[in-house]
């Protein structure tokens, strides 16, 4: 069976390495794609059916909310979560308003697992 595909977009190498570790250890039936900014994310996502996207908010160039909107245009229904250190209510509301999830940094295996469970539910 083909592996499910997830995309992590974060300009921090540390954040990407943490997510990579969680996927390697806990989610072996997933392929993880990595991008350091929105532009690279859109290139990597081109033509691929993704199941999950984890997107940082504060990145050089396009921010995470704008990127999420672009990803949703290409693949409506894609499960996207904004993963951010900006934990203010207004940021959560912005995420909600475009129909994406919200994960507070630091990210953990448990938080990714929760996002995946909502996906299958």
């Amino acid at each position: 069976m083909e592996k499910k595909k997830a995309l992590i977009v974060d300009d921090s190498s540390l954040a990407r390495m943490m997510v990579r570790k969680f996927f390697t250890e806990g989610f072996k039936d997933w392929d993880l794609l990595e991008a350091k900014d929105a532009l690279e994310a859109l290139e990597k996502a081109e033509g691929l059916p993704l199941q999950l996207a984890l997107v940082d908010f504060n990145m050089p160039g396009m921010n995470g909310i704008d990127l999420a909107e672009k990803l949703l245009e290409k693949q409506p229904g894609l499960s996207i979560h904004l993963v951010t250190a900006n934990i203010q209510e207004r940021m959560q509301l912005r995420a909600e308003s475009i129909g994406i999830g919200f994960i507070k940094k630091p990210i953990s295996q448990e938080k990714i697992s929760d996002a995946m469970q909502r996906l299958s539910g």
């Binding site: 921090s12 190498s13 540390l14 504060n58 951010t84 250190a85 900006n86 934990i87 203010q88 940094k105």
Partner: peptide, 23 residues
């Protein structure tokens, strides 16, 4: 470079908390 990147990410998380308190 990686250690500096990690520090920046920690600081960003700290700033997120500060911004939340200020907001």
């Amino acid at each position: 470079e990686l250690e500096e990147d990690a520090l920046k990410e920690f600081f960003n998380m700290g700033l997120g908390m500060a911004a939340n308190s200020l907001s």
